[in-house]
């Protein structure tokens, strides 16, 4: 027997996945926030989507979320060189997410 689903069910599923499926519907900003909070336990975390300022530049895409500035204050940066701090952020974000961000500018403090 062929099962058919009314449109309503599909709409509900889409709605449901938005509410419950962070892996599916998370924005890049949310994903950056989640990974940095998990990886660095920051005391202060500010994520700014600066994509609009780069409209027309390389890497810009409609809808934004291509160019970010992130400010992080985290205790674990203490005693780390500037390069090591940046590398810790790259690692917390992961290669896949880094690959989806065109430009990432960082301000990193202890």
């Amino acid at each position: 027997m062929k099962l058919t689903f009314p449109t309503r069910v599909r709409e509900f599923k889409a709605f449901d996945s938005k509410m419950k499926g962070p892996e599916l519907k998370m924005t890049v900003t949310e994903e950056i926030r989640n990974r940095l909070e998990a990886g660095l336990s920051p005391r202060h975390l500010e994520i700014e989507d600066q994509s609009e300022a780069h409209r027309g530049h390389a890497g810009f895409r409609e809808g934004g979320e291509s160019h970010f500035h992130v400010e992080i204050h985290a205790a674990q940066f203490g005693g780390m060189s500037r390069i090591a701090r940046h590398r810790a952020v790259h690692e917390a974000l992961g290669k896949d997410l880094m690959g989806r961000i065109h430009a990432l500018s960082l301000t990193l403090e202890e």
Partner: peptide
């Protein structure tokens, strides 16, 4: 082991990218 360009080298040592050089 650095994912972005530009990259500055001085005397064979990696110094950093745009944020680090600016700071």
């Amino acid at each position: 082991d650095w994912p972005t360009i530009p990259q500055l080298y001085v005397k064979g040592e990696f110094v950093g990218g745009c944020d680090i050089i600016t700071e």
